[in-house]
Design a protein around this nucleic acid. Structure first.
Length: 291
DNA sequence: AGCCAGGCTAAGA
DNA sequence: TCTTAGCATGGC
């Protein structure tokens, strides 16, 4: 696959849908290249390719199979996991449609900054800002005939001027990104420790950052910290919640929607959220699956 | 050319 | 405690 290292392969016992997994709005740095996908795992450039029952990768710095399994959540049985989810006809439809969509275990620091950037924006613009940020502040790595840029370290972002930050299209979010970077750099917030805290405590810690509200905090916890009960409520989630599960007169609070979701989907509501979110965006209104 | 986007903050009721 | 204007910017 054109790297300086040998390709590695692992056998898949369950389907893995890379298109749905990498391009469903949970990660922002993957890009398709024919049948392959270019991105980063464990902060090293990697090129992926998947078949029906195999996953192949080449990385700048070799990535152990364990880490690949961890990233794609291949260390646990997907079907078993989904069967633990309370039965719901709409969720069943989404799961059937995107069987093989997996919630990634992403880097918590990158998730924090990425979802701060995501507020009141759209996927194309989020991706653009993150790439430009990596270009001006991320370490350069040459791999597979290209120059890659790692996601910037906290110190690198903290030392950028506001003007430099704004040059990546961040707008008013620039100050939020800088302050988050500063707090992480001086140890006031430790993204990697959040997965070991109880959900409520981790939530409060992230929420304390300026520019981080309930929605962004839940994205960070769900996509970067393995807190599967986190239930981000963006416009799309609010859309399907209102169309399908819960229709109050006025705009329901995040907390209210969370409670509805937890009651219906249990402690893995966040995983359900991602299926429903992706289905609603990519396919359309939720329909009950015929039983 | 507007409209809208994986929202948040601060001000006012 | 619950609403709402304003916010920077760029895709589409």
């Amino acid at each position: 696959m054109g790297g300086e290292n040998e390709a590695q392969t692992l056998l898949l016992h369950e389907t893995l849908d890379l298109d749905a997994t990498l391009y469903s709005g949970q990660a922002f740095r993957w890009r398709r290249d024919g049948a392959r996908h270019r991105g980063f795992i464990d902060n090293t450039p990697v090129i992926l390719e998947a078949g029906a029952d195999w996953l192949k990768w080449v990385a700048k710095t070799p990535i152990h199979e364990e880490r690949i399994r961890h990233y794609f959540r291949l260390d646990t049985s997907h079907t078993e996991f989904l069967e633990q989810m309370p039965h719901d006809p709409f969720l069943s439809r989404a799961i059937r449609h995107f069987a093989g969509l997996r919630l990634l275990r992403q880097d918590p620091w990158e998730a924090l900054i990425s979802f701060i950037i995501s507020q009141n924006s759209n996927e194309a613009k989020i991706r653009s800002s993150i790439e430009r940020l990596a270009h001006i502040a991320g370490a350069a790595v040459d791999f597979a005939g290209e120059r890659w840029r790692l996601f910037p370290a906290p110190a690198a972002l903290a030392s950028l001027t506001l003007a430099d930050l704004r040059s990546t299209g961040l707008g008013y979010r620039a100050e939020y990104v800088r302050e988050a970077a500063r707090r992480v750099e001086r140890g006031a917030l430790a993204p990697h420790a959040l997965s070991n805290l109880p959900y409520e405590e981790a939530f409060a810690n992230v929420l304390a950052l300026p520019g981080v509200g309930e929605k962004v905090a839940d994205c960070v916890l769900l996509y970067g910290c393995d807190h599967l009960q986190a239930f981000p409520t963006d416009v799309w989630v609010r859309r399907f919640m209102q169309e399908t599960y819960y229709r109050p007169r006025r705009r329901p609070s995040h907390e209210r929607l969370q409670r509805v979701a937890w009651k219906r989907f249990g402690p893995m509501a966040g995983y359900a959220q991602h299926y429903l979110f992706h289905y609603r965006r990519a396919v359309g209104r939720l329909e009950a699956s015929p039983s």
